Amino acid sequence: MSSDLNFFDLFLQASILVQFVMLLLLAVSIFSWAFIFERSKALTFARTEMKKFEDKFWSGVDLNKLYQELSARQSIEGMSSMFCAGFKEYVRLRKSPSTPAEAVMDGSYRAMRVALSREIDSLENRLPFLATAGSISPYIGLFGTVWGIMNAFIALGEVQQATLAMVAPGIAEALIATAMGLFAAIPAVIAYNRFSHQVEKLENNYGNFMEEFSSILHRQALASNADSAARPVSHN
Score class of each variant (00 low, 15 high):
16 I>H: 10
109 Y>W: 09
158 E>T: 07
73 R>P: 15
42 A>L: 00
31 F>V: 00
3 S>K: 00
192 Y>F: 11
208 N>F: 02
88 K>E: 12
136 I>L: 04
208 N>D: 14
204 N>C: 03
207 G>R: 10
137 S>R: 00
61 V>R: 13
37 F>C: 04
22 M>H: 04
81 S>W: 01
100 P>M: 01
90 Y>G: 13
160 Q>A: 02
109 Y>T: 13
31 F>D: 04
233 V>L: 10
57 F>S: 12
221 A>I: 10
153 F>Y: 09
126 R>C: 15
8 F>D: 12
156 L>G: 04
11 F>P: 14
110 R>S: 05
178 T>A: 01
202 L>Y: 08
232 P>K: 03
62 D>I: 06
31 F>Y: 13
52 K>C: 08
122 S>D: 13
35 F>I: 07
148 G>E: 03
114 V>S: 11
174 A>M: 02
166 M>A: 02
106 D>P: 14
106 D>A: 02
6 N>Y: 05
142 L>H: 04
68 Q>I: 09
128 P>C: 00
155 A>V: 13
10 L>M: 02
217 L>D: 03
109 Y>I: 01
177 A>F: 00
153 F>H: 09
13 Q>W: 04
76 I>D: 05
166 M>H: 12
23 L>D: 15
216 I>V: 13
39 R>N: 07
5 L>Y: 15
125 N>F: 14
197 H>Y: 06
163 T>P: 15
45 F>H: 15
58 W>M: 06
179 A>L: 01
61 V>D: 14
32 S>L: 08
119 E>Q: 08
179 A>F: 00
225 N>R: 02
106 D>E: 12
41 K>W: 07
98 S>F: 08
108 S>A: 07
120 I>Y: 11
139 Y>C: 00
102 E>Q: 11
152 A>P: 15
97 P>M: 00
187 P>A: 01
10 L>Y: 07
109 Y>A: 06
234 S>K: 11
12 L>E: 15
139 Y>E: 12
185 A>S: 04
82 M>S: 03
50 M>N: 05
133 A>K: 05
203 E>L: 02
18 V>R: 05
148 G>H: 01
86 G>K: 07
87 F>T: 11
153 F>K: 07
194 R>T: 14
207 G>I: 03
227 D>L: 09
83 F>G: 01
155 A>W: 10
